[in-house]
Computed example of a mutant assay.
Amino acid sequence: MAPAAKGRKREQGPRKSEPPAPEAPSSDEAWAYEVAHAESSTDLAPLVGRNLRRLRTQRGLSLERLAKASGVSRAMLGQIELGQSAPTINVIWKIARALGIPFSALISTTAQSGTRLMRSQQSKRLASHDGSFVSRALFPFDEPRRVEFYELRLAARAVEEADAHPPGTMENLVVTSGSVEIERGEERHVLAAGDAILFEADVAHVYRNVGDVDATMYLVMTYAETVG
Rank of each mutant, 00 (worst) to 15 (best):
G7W: 10
R10F: 11
E11F: 13
G13D: 09
R15G: 13
K16P: 01
P20W: 01
E23W: 08
S27N: 05
H37K: 06
D43Y: 09
A45Q: 12
V48N: 04
G49E: 00
G49C: 00
N51S: 06
L55G: 05
Q58N: 11
L61W: 04
L61S: 05
L63V: 14
M76A: 11
M76W: 01
M76Y: 08
E81T: 05
L82E: 09
I92D: 01
W93C: 03
R97H: 12
L99Y: 01
I101G: 04
F103I: 02
S104D: 02
A105L: 08
A105G: 03
I107M: 01
S108P: 02
T110V: 13
T110A: 15
G114Y: 11
R119T: 08
S120V: 15
Q122Y: 05
S123R: 15
S123V: 10
K124F: 02
R125E: 04
L126C: 12
L126S: 13
S128F: 12
V134G: 07
A137V: 10
F139V: 15
P140N: 11
F141R: 10
D142E: 13
R146M: 11
A156N: 00
V159Q: 08
H165M: 15
P166C: 07
P167Q: 13
M170W: 12
M170V: 14
N172I: 07
L173A: 07
S177E: 12
S177K: 07
G178D: 03
G178Q: 04
S179Q: 15
E181N: 05
I182L: 12
E183Y: 07
E183H: 10
L191W: 10
A192Y: 10
A193E: 03
G211L: 07
V213Y: 08
A215M: 09
M217W: 08
T222P: 02
T222D: 01
G228P: 05
